[in-house]
């Protein structure tokens, strides 16, 4: 269980974290979702005892990150965003090294990592620096797990990773969760929110919302329509020029549209688009996803 209580952190004049509070429950898979510079890494470095906050406090399984930092280090596994293994050691040597630091062996906790490590074991004599991105990620996760941590903290494990590998990584996390581990993971990919029990959305050092993915999407305050037509760029421009337009965001194969009076007259809009020479027009009401909600929540601070 992780308790974060009103944490603030400043770097000179930059306020990296502003009064951040949330709790991650025992055995929960919790996602911290935000773009680069939102404060995700700063928060994780504070929780993993690598950085001190200016204000506020945090505990991991009721152990204080400041006063009892050595004890905290024993119960956490941390995978930083930058690949931080020894590039000139082999796969097996890296894993052995991390095991020995925690006075354990690969054999002792093999069960926990077997699922992940098996995929890279054929390359165990290869130098870590020569592994592909996906293999590095699996090795780093194996190293973070080798001492059987109670809490796993993963900083952007899927950034820059292709769509399939991302899904596989989340399936690995789900399986780890069944082994009783509490998992806190950060990501800039909004679609990964769906894989978490609960998420916190963060921007500019502030938490925008904390809830289950469903809870967040259910609280979207506007009717949302997905609009498509053949000429997408022209469609975006024309929708922005519509009198009743509130937000116009391209979204995959359609454009997500909310209206100022929250009451879309479909026939009127259809005719408006027809007048502007659009073809294959489709207007359907749709349910918002996390990305819609994130954009809605971040709008006021956009200036």
């Amino acid at each position: 269980m992780i308790k974060i209580n009103q944490i603030s952190k400043n770097y000179e004049t930059v306020k990296a974290l502003k009064n951040v509070s949330f709790t991650v429950d025992e055995n929960e898979l919790f996602g911290l979702i935000g773009s680069d510079g939102a404060g995700k890494t700063t928060l994780f470095r504070i929780l993993t005892t690598l950085l001190l906050s200016n204000e506020g406090s945090a505990t991991l399984n009721n152990i204080n990150v400041k006063n009892d930092y050595k004890k905290v280090r024993e119960i956490i596994g941390y995978m930083p965003g930058k690949f931080s293994l020894y590039q000139d050691l082999s796969v097996e040597e890296n894993l052995n090294f991390f095991a020995s630091v925690f006075n354990t062996t690969i054999e002792e906790n093999y069960d926990l990592i077997a699922d992940i490590y098996k995929q890279i074991e054929p390359f165990k004599t290869r130098i870590a620096g020569k592994l592909s991105g996906g293999m590095k990620q699996k090795l780093a996760l194996s190293c973070a797990l080798i001492h059987k941590p109670k809490i796993l903290i993963l900083d952007e494990p899927t950034t820059g990773v292709d769509a399939v590998s991302r899904m596989e990584f989340w399936q690995m996390l789900k399986r780890l969760q069944t082994k009783g581990i509490t998992i806190l993971v950060s990501t800039p990919y909004m679609d990964e929110a769906e894989m978490c029990d609960r998420v916190a959305l963060i921007q500019n050092g502030e938490i925008l919302s904390i809830d289950t993915p469903k809870g967040i999407t259910n609280s979207f305050p506007y009717k949302l329509h997905a609009i498509s037509a053949d000429n997408k760029y022209q469609l975006i421009k024309d929708l922005r020029n519509h009198d009743n337009a509130r937000t116009v965001f391209p979204f995959g194969n359609s454009v997500h549209f909310t209206t100022a009076n929250n009451n879309l007259n479909e026939e009127e809009l259809y005719n408006y688009l027809m007048t502007n020479n659009h073809t294959n027009i489709s207007i359907i009401e749709t349910t918002p996803n996390i990305e819609d909600c994130f954009m809605e929540l971040m709008k006021p601070s956009r200036g």
């Binding site: 773009s35 950034t159 975006i236 971040m298």
Partner: peptide, 14 residues
Amino acid sequence: TGGVDPITRRQFWD
């Protein structure tokens, strides 16, 4: 567009 917020990402596609 890696790492940027969803609104900026869309402005980039504009």
